[in-house]
Amino acid sequence: MTPRSALIRLAVRVLYPAMLAASLWILWRGHHQPGGGFIGGMVAVAATSLLAVAEGSHTALSRLPFGPARLAACGGLASLTSGLPALALGRPYLEHLWLEIPLGPTKLPLSTVMLFDLGVYAVVWGALGGLCAHAMGLDEKAAVAAEAVPAPGESGPERVEP
């Protein structure tokens, strides 16, 4: 791995959890205000890319819960499932239902939209975060290969000629 600036690594150690927390807040807030799953997910992708810059793509990928592909797939499944309760009630697919659970002085609002949004968040984070970190990983490999071969282009793999 190429050496990285200690300053960036230190900053990212603080920034990564902070950005993830912010992304979750945006996800939560998006319920009735600007924000939501996609935008929250994008902030999480930014956090993952930053981690990939600071600590290398491998670390960033391993910090995604369940791994990138599974995270995205689980998110997609969550979003797809969120439309099913409406079907059980004889309503069209993806019609969303709201439920409020009274908790003494306050109420806990629950809805299928939240499940949908959470799914979108996971899809965006898993798919795009995984892709960004993976693409950076390609570059790291190229850098390692360039270090191993003194003059790139002279002894690289043969060009595909007709």
């Binding site: 797939a73 689980c74 997609g76 797809l80 439309g83 079907l87 004889g90 697919y93």
Partner: peptide
């Protein structure tokens, strides 16, 4: 119709995601 119509999309989509979850 409510049930059947989305299925040609939902079914393959869910399968794509499930096979991705079990990709190992």
């Amino acid at each position: 119709g409510n049930w059947l119509l989305p299925l040609p999309v939902i079914l393959p989509l869910a399968t794509a995601l499930l096979t991705m979850v079990s990709w190992r």
